[in-house]
Design a protein around this nucleic acid. Sequence first.
DNA 1: CACCAAATGTGGACGGCGTACACAAAGGTC
DNA 2: GACCTTTGTGTACGCCGTCCACATTTGGTG
Lengths: 212, 212
Amino acid sequence: MATRDTYRHGNLRQALIAAGVELARTGGPDAVVLREATRQAGVVPNAAYRHFDDRRALLSAVSQAALAELARAMELRTAEEADERPEGDEAGAQAVARARLRALVRGYLSFARAEPGLFRAAFVTSDLENTDTEAAAGTGGRTAFRLLSDALDDLSACGMLPVERRPGAEYFVWAAVHGMAVLLIEGPLRGLLPGQAEEAEQRLLRAIERGL
Amino acid sequence: MATRDTYRHGNLRQALIAAGVELARTGGPDAVVLREATRQAGVVPNAAYRHFDDRRALLSAVSQAALAELARAMELRTAEEADERPEGDEAGAQAVARARLRALVRGYLSFARAEPGLFRAAFVTSDLENTDTEAAAGTGGRTAFRLLSDALDDLSACGMLPVERRPGAEYFVWAAVHGMAVLLIEGPLRGLLPGQAEEAEQRLLRAIERGL
DNA sequence: CACCAAATGTGGACGGCGTACACAAAGGTC
DNA sequence: GACCTTTGTGTACGCCGTCCACATTTGGTG
């Protein structure tokens, strides 16, 4: 929609990603249509090829942006919960570590429910080496996966997770959380009332903590 | 490619689904192209519209067929393991129930690794009410999800799963298993050597059993 | 400052896709 | 055998991703 007086756009690459993110937000990865993104950027379709090899490259960039939003949602949730729990006494360090993991999980799941299109775009298969790059990270520079992993390190440091079980634990946690997200947005649990979803989250959290 | 002498095809609907399944096997859900399926069935593109409302309806049917293959893979695995463990003494009923769950999980994960395209097609979002229909079931008439659920019932009957934790447990198990499958085929765990994948499966199984 | 090369946007075209509409051929029923 | 329903055909439209040649701007080098 944006029109322009200069011949050069100035920041076309970012504009295309931004348009792609909005398309993905509404309609998931399939809605990231190259021509539509260029239209919204006020540019002719071929202009996109100066910044992306092809549609998949654009989609990949959109995916990274979506992963970054997910990471930010998780960071935000942990920050909120930290506010509610201002003081950590000596043994309370365990409680803090535990609360952090719970907050991350909840942030992950509520992002999936609030932004299903973006969530699906974040995990578009394609060639993702991109899952662990800078662009996929949140404000703190850590990706969603990294946030979970670090939380498990904390848990392990507090003695709440036996060291012999630490290796690979992030895969178990991520699998459970991601799987639940899929169940909630496109599986048999979609369309659950918010209250019911909360309860499912609670149960999942307990099962994860037992499983660690 | 199949040519025909009769004007009527005879079984076009099934032929289109079969072609769609093969396309999905090779290239995932995006490869299920309506025109290509009709080409393989030796028919003009519009003929498909006598049997499916649109491309998404075809994809949905392909998805159900893929879910059925998944269920059959899980059934097959449990049957194999049951052979290896011919006799169940009185307390061995617990061992049998436990082995069944493990076999189902392994069947799920090895199907995902062996047929990633089909696996992804099976879980195409769309309008799936279809996840729980007859067409999505295996030879025994039960869907993949149902198989897991029934195995948990057995576990609960043996006293290996406290009754108060039974409700919702299938969601935890399915989430963990499905999440791990995604990690293995398109997440950070893709490209693991078969041996490493086995080890990850083992760890996941232990975590699930602890979490129950 | 003039000039040229690189970077960026434009215009036009091609083939493939999903799908709509009108038409044709085969089956089933009376 | 006449009529209606089902199933496949022909033609056409608009949208998409992408290729190629060309135009415009920018930035560096003489």
